[in-house]
Every structure is written in C-alpha cells, then in structure tokens.
C-alpha cells in the first residue's frame, strides 16, 4: 500500500517544529505502525536525511514506551492497542496519516515524536509505591486478599504508564494514570499504611507538573491500551476525599 505521512518534525526542545509530508510507498499491510516508520526511516537514511525519532522498546504492547497520536487519536485509537501493535491493515491504500507527539505541557517534546515523560516518574516518586522493610520474604498468602480486590488491583496495575490518557484528554489530565496507581495500592493490604499520604502526595505532584483537570470526557479510558477503567478515577476521588478529611 502507498501512504502519505504528515509527521511532526522538531529538532530539539527549543526549536519550533512543523508537520512534514513523506510518501511511504510499498508498505505491507502486515507491518506494524512502527515497522512502517522503520521502513520510512531506512529510506530517509539512504537519502542522507535525518530519520524520524520516535519512542519504542518491547514492540509487544507491554512496555509503555511507544506513543504517537495518529490522526488525532492516541495509539491510533483502536481498542486495547498500543502503536506497536497497530497494524497497517487498519489503514487504506492512499490514506493520509498525520502523526504527532503526545501534546502536554508536562510532556515536552525532546525531538520529533519523542516526548519527555519523566513527569510520570516524579508522580510515582511522590507516593506510588509501598515502603517495606528489608528482611525475610513473608509467607505466601500470609496476608489474605479478597478475590475481587485482587482483581481490581490487578486491573489497575495493568497500566503501562504510556501517557495515552494525557495525550487523549481534551484537558491534558493525567488522572487515569495517577488513579491506576492509587487504586492499585489502595485495594491491597500492603498499600494501606501509606494510603492517605500516597493519594495526597501523588495528586499534589500531578498538579505541580501542570497536567490538566478531569472533566469526565472519558477519552482516556477509550484509548488506554490496557483498558484501565475510569472507575479507578472514582476510586482515587474517594481516596482523596477520605484522606483530606481524615488526615491532619
């Protein structure tokens, strides 16, 4: 198949970028979107041009490194799909495909389609963990966890931190990401001792990073490659209210 790509090119964080058109000829429909970009890049390199920079790692849909807003939708907008698992058969011959980086004040563009997502790391540093003292490993099942809680925690823990929620949110809000971590640990007994300081700390950091505020568009849930539900945002809201009322 032959495609026209409009790709955001930006040399570095300081310079202004712009959309540049490229013809992508003889693309196999069996390629993933990233493999298609690999082919485009090989041809650019052969012509002596700068290849397009984009993030990727596992290419199995589990690491959270790949990104890209494709025709206005994060990861291309297909259900439960990362860009690396998006295949060219979902496009038509002759399509014009616009490829942009995640757009968020908190995710500055590093180069072309690569953005700096360390804002998420700082949010995790602010409480997205369980402090445990070193020592012998506890016996398995010494801490009983009800099945439903384990399932909900696991659903939340499926978040791979790709940032599609931020990219797709009309407000640039990171609430689905933060909620996934808050909810994951709030559902488990291991997370309970730090429950209040976790949600307060993470929400505070989320606000400091300049993410927007949730207005319940639910676009995040629709594009999330791990189908993390906005029910976790409701859980985070409950956790936040509880912590705000009870904590000194």
């Amino acid at each position: 198949m032959n495609l026209t790509l409009r790709i955001w090119r930006q040399r570095n964080a300081q310079e202004r970028g712009s959309l540049v058109s490229y013809e992508a000829k003889d693309i196999s429909p069996d390629m993933s979107f990233l493999e298609m970009l690999d082919v485009v890049n090989e041809r650019l390199i052969a012509k002596g041009e700068e290849p397009v920079a984009f993030d990727h790692d596992c290419r199995e849909g589990i690491c959270g490194m790949c990104s890209l807003v494709i025709n206005g939708l994060a990861h291309g907008g297909r259900r439960a799909t990362t860009t690396c698992q998006l295949h060219m058969r979902h496009f038509k011959d002759g399509d014009v495909i616009t490829v942009e980086p995640w757009r968020s004040r908190a995710f500055p563009v590093v180069r072309d389609l690569v953005v700096d997502r360390t804002a998420f790391d700082r949010v995790i540093h602010a409480g997205g963990f369980v402090s445990s003292n070193a020592g012998g490993a506890p016996d398995a099942n010494a801490l009983p966890v009800p099945r439903d809680d384990a399932e909900k925690a696991m659903d939340a823990a499926a978040c791979i931190g790709c940032g599609a929620c931020v990219a797709s949110c009309p407000n640039g809000s990171a609430m689905l990401f933060v909620a996934a971590k808050v909810s994951h640990l709030a559902h488990l007994p291991q997370g309970h001792p730090e429950r209040a300081q976790r949600v307060l700390g993470m929400v505070h950091q989320m606000d400091l990073e300049g993410f927007g505020n949730c207005t319940n568009h639910t676009e995040c849930e629709a594009v999330c490659p791990k189908e993390v539900s906005i029910s976790h945002i409701a859980k985070m809201n409950r956790e936040f209210i509880r912590a705000s009322v009870l904590e000194a």
């Binding site: 025709n71 206005g72 639910t218 629709a222 594009v223």
Partner: peptide
C-alpha cells in the same frame, strides 16, 4: 494543539 483533533467517546 493537535493539528488533527479527533475524539472517540466524549
């Protein structure tokens, strides 16, 4: 802003 704006569910 995005050059192409698209939404799924909002």
């Amino acid at each position: 802003p995005y050059a192409v704006e698209a939404h799924l569910v909002t």
